[in-house]
Design a protein around this nucleic acid. Structure first.
Lengths: 220, 220
DNA sequence: TTGAATAAGTGTAAGACATACACTATCACA
DNA sequence: TGTGATAGTGTATGTCTTACACTTATTCAA
């Protein structure tokens, strides 16, 4: 809180940058959009803020405008200040990260200028962009352990194997099936449905659903 | 990252707000400064950002200017956007929190307009200011568990009872002395010195020091 | 119809970590 | 030399974490 006379203050440009993740084809993927006017340069969805906007809203609207995506989990990540590569003056980047189940993306407008990239096959990005992606990924990995954030990647109903795969993909390690189930079910954040998922020539898997959909809570 | 033409963008005023904590008289305390021109309104140390400044530097310089304090642990907390109470337009507040041992504050310039307040005796603050303080306190409590942040409150050498007191004050609960020592020493972040602290009529306490001073690391 | 392939689903024992708990040691001071 | 005050120390119990292998339900092809 600071109340110096506005005369002493220099206005700055402020943007929101959104790192949006999904999981598809057994990989963590990230959405980028082609930078205006550049063919081979990519940017995060996001937009400059106006004085009557709200940071969160600015990020959500930018996401919707650039990608057609709405209603996703969105969390503020960190605020970076870097020189604008075009103009040289400083721009404040309020970075967010967002998560969505892959199957909510079907049938979206999806600008031709946006594209999902697996995290291990990202196009060339600036040092600054890489810092943002890494911060988002670190936060995601950390939050897996102490929040119900993983469910933001799941459809309305899902099997325990699918849920386990999300943890394995994000943490880049195999987990023990029995221990995983014990732990997950012990938290009582999900409940069994009476439906099953039949795919392939093997025993069908029971479907589960979140007990409190749309809420990310802190565990422990 | 966003590269829309600057013509479309509206500049905003950006400030840093610093919540600086210390521990003194067995209480967590917070530094506020009197708002310019107001006798009974208090503000966080902080300042408006210029286009050639750096967020972190802006916060550090504001701290030094307002309070004479330098060289403290400083971490970015969260970015808030609220209407300016004076002008009505929106101001971006990048909040930081800082920690310092009490004994580093002795002999500082210490503007007459700054004052330390125990957390349970804060003066009247705005809703927004209260949100910032609560966010900082939450982060502090959380980080006690998984980082070496507590040492930022300690002098160069300290007793285990002093360290335990820091945990107890921040977490607002008594801890078991033997278990506390077992855990803390087991992490090997501190080492015994051959010095003792004699105060009062009782057995002197051994002094310990950080093995890697000035580094806050993540535990586990 | 039956066997092979495939993923789903299930329990237990051992080890690691967290918790609860009480007495002795050392000093200052009266 | 006795009293008051804080420092310093170990063990037993319970809880959580980890490692580990076989049976079940289904599809498909022979």
């Amino acid at each position: 809180m600071n109340t110096k006379a506005p005369a002493e203050t220099t206005p700055l440009r402020v943007t929101t940058d959104v790192v949006i993740f999904t999981i598809n084809e057994h990989r963590l993927q990230l959405l980028l959009r082609r930078q205006d006017g550049a063919d081979n340069a990519w940017a995060f969805p996001g937009g400059f803020m106006g004085p009557d906007q709200d940071l969160q809203l600015c990020a959500l609207e930018a996401l919707a405008r650039d990608t057609g995506i709405s209603g996703v989990y969105l969390e503020q990540l960190y605020t970076f200040d870097w020189p604008d590569p075009d103009q040289g003056d400083r721009v404040i980047h309020v970075a967010f990260y967002a998560l969505t189940p892959w199957d909510r993306l079907q049938g979206l407008a999806g600008d031709v200028n946006t594209q999902w990239f697996p995290m291990d096959q990202l196009p060339a990005l600036s040092r600054e962009q890489i810092m943002v992606v890494e911060a988002a990924q670190q936060r995601l990995v950390a939050k897996l352990d102490y929040s119900t954030i993983a469910y933001e990647f799941m459809s309305e109903s899902f099997t325990l194997s699918q849920l386990q795969a999300v943890y394995e993909i994000i943490r880049r390690e195999k987990l023990d099936k029995r221990n995983f189930r014990k732990q997950v079910l012990g938290l009582h954040h999900i409940e069994a449905t009476d439906k099953f998922r039949r795919n392939g020539s093997h025993r069908p898997a029971r479907l589960y659903r979140k007990i409190h959909p749309g809420q990310v809570t802190i565990i422990k």
